[in-house]
């Protein structure tokens, strides 16, 4: 088995409030292997975006990593000083945000921004950097790239802008891209195209991706493996096919059943009763236990760790004692 590119171990992120400490991420552990696309799926407030922010060192104060470790290959990156972390960003880990307009500077041309990013990370002169920029734009599917490179962001449509953002993220030839809801702001017909570009580019450049999204469709289209988050914890990790077809955790089962099917029509959707707990009211034991239809006595007392089964890892007592 290959060494993981990124390794997150027992990551705890806390937000100190006036009287209490909110634990936004609670012992999150997962690995990302070179060249793979790992999906992070969960509902709003599950902590999926926060995980990405913690990895790249962009947690909003007063949020901070309280314990746990983040390893990028054999370098520990959760305690790096600001300056070193800044150099790591873009070069080894790049980020793609939901809204392409906010990640592009409106008063600079695409060429300015791309060439600057390339030259920050690679030792290229202006001419070579420009050639590289055109090549990148061409690869992400921007027609007439050599002409359009001198345009400003507002001259591009939403989908084209997100392609530019992908090109920008790839400019430093990073080992890992964290993509936070990259298609959420786009129309369905454009969304499909962007997923394709992201998949193809990362495959060609051998870049690993952590794809954060709430959309199970995007996960199924793009990812190799999936981590399902619930209330700041990892509920389940596994191959995408296993998660979609044979989810193990009762939460994942409910989640999959609640998505209306395009193939067959059902009278009623499966619904998980209640809603995800607020961070200041996470129940003891398994965080999902008040909504779980299969809970046993133990679920309200002990918190389940990730248990390795033949289908992946799941944090649920129902699978305790199964031989891996």
């Amino acid at each position: 088995m290959t060494e993981p590119l990124l390794s997150v171990r027992d990551l705890v992120v806390e937000f100190p409030k006036r009287k209490i400490k909110l634990t936004a991420l609670d012992k999150v552990s997962f690995d990302i292997y070179p060249g793979e696309i790992l999906g992070m799926v969960g509902e709003s407030g599950a902590g999926k975006s926060l995980t990405g922010a913690a990895i790249i060192g962009l947690l909003e104060p007063p949020g901070h990593v309280a314990s746990g470790e983040i390893w990028l290959k054999d370098q520990r990156i959760d305690q790096l000083p600001y300056e070193q972390m800044r150099r790591l960003r873009g070069k080894r880990i790049a980020m793609i945000f939901q809204d392409p307009l906010t990640s592009l500077n409106p008063i600079l041309t695409i060429a300015d921004q791309l060439i600057e990013t390339i030259q920050t990370h690679l030792p290229l002169n202006d001419k070579d950097a420009r050639a590289r920029a055109v090549q990148l734009l061409d690869e992400v599917g921007i027609p007439a790239a050599s002409k359009r490179i001198d345009d400003y962001p507002h001259q591009f449509s939403g989908g084209m802008r997100q392609r530019v953002v992908i090109a920008l993220a790839l400019a430093g030839e990073p080992e890992l891209i964290i993509a936070d809801e990259p298609t959420t702001a786009l129309d369905v017909s454009v969304q499909a195209q962007i997923i394709d570009v992201l998949k193809r580019m990362c495959h060609e450049h051998k870049t690993a991706v952590m794809l954060v999204t709430h959309d199970m469709g995007v996960i199924a289209e793009a990812c190799d493996r999936v981590a399902v988050m619930y209330a700041g914890r990892v509920a389940e990790i596994g191959e995408v096919r296993q998660i979609v077809k044979r989810p193990q955790h009762p939460y994942t089962q409910g989640l999959m059943g609640s998505i209306p099917s395009i193939v067959e029509r059902v009278e009623r959707l499966t619904q998980i009763p209640g809603s995800m707990p607020r961070l200041d009211a996470i129940p003891s034991g398994c965080a999902f236990n008040p909504r779980c239809t299969q809970k046993i006595a133990r679920c309200t007392q002990d918190r389940p760790e990730l248990i390795t089964t033949d289908q992946g890892q799941v944090s649920c007592w129902l699978y305790d004692g199964e031989t891996p």
């Binding site: 129309d187 369905v188 017909s189 995408v240 979609v244 193939v263």
Partner: peptide, 19 residues
């Protein structure tokens, strides 16, 4: 363009262009 979240293997064609 709808993602195949059920992985049913629906046959689909590449979508192009924007509105």
């Amino acid at each position: 363009a709808i993602p195949d979240h059920e992985m049913s293997g629906r046959r689909r064609k590449q979508v192009t262009g924007e509105i």
